[in-house]
Amino acid sequence: MTRFLVTRILSALLALLGVICLVFLLIHLIPGDPVEVMLGESAQPTDKETLRHALGLDLPLHQQWWIYFKGLLHLDLGTSLFSGRAIVDLLIERIPATLYLSLVSLIVAIGLALPLGLVAAVRQHTPLDYGAMGFALFGMSIPNFWMGPLLILVGALWLGWFPVSGREGWNSVVLPALTLGTAMAAILARMIRSSVLEVLGEDFMRTARAKGLSPTRAVLHHALPNALLPILTLLGLQLGGLLGGAVITETVFAWPGLGLLMIEAIQQRDYPVVQAAVLCISTTYIVVNLLTDLLYAWLDPRIQFTTGDG
């Protein structure tokens, strides 16, 4: 287990280092000049040179990288070119909103997908199965930028139950979470169905039924837990995506999260904020995947040996 843990953590750190290098190079690879962004077109060349020197942008690349890396170790991500605010403060402001939306969306997704997937698997080739999978197809086919305004129209305008957008109260999370959650639920429901179907054909399920367990108990207590492992991987990936900022949904609902921050920064060419947002999102992916792997190994102790032996 220790070897597995160490291997996984080391590979995650290696990936993180790669991301840091790529994110650092981002500012040098993309067209545009941060100094010109800050000073505007009317700035004098001498002023541009002065600022470039002050920002350390005239130093050799390796020195700039080392300064950037040292800054990261102290959680110094720089300041926004436009607002002049510390980027760490911007992230601290936005991450809780994204985290909140992600978790509620995940709950919505699981809440929808679990019964749908189970019913579809247990009642395979029946109208219930077709209905559940039809919903899944529907959920996967509808893009968020369409689903969002549709939910706003119904939930906020017609019914008047929820705010149209923004983070304006406890219930403002409902519509964006439903938008994200239904799309996720669709994929999850299909995964749960196929995973449960696979497990239902296993020998231990026949044993469970043979010893007199009710079908419901056999499915809930034996089939479902054993079917959850592949679903966990999918959930990990999807949660990573959500925590990285659901860009479209956050934009539609003016949800003050990481996705909206990144879009704003890209539009304004606020390079340090884009760098920090990309780094934050990549780190989230790496951490969530690491945790998924560890959870996977914890739930199924055989995994570590399989992985360890290559």
């Binding site: 129209l153 906020a156 305008l157 705010p163 149209v164 957008s165 539609v252 003016a254």
Partner: peptide
């Protein structure tokens, strides 16, 4: 001042008196 990037949502928000 509320930032609402999407013009349709801005419209709906005015209609909802938000």
């Amino acid at each position: 001042f509320l930032r609402i990037p999407d013009p349709t949502v801005r419209t709906l928000k005015l209609l909802a008196n938000e």
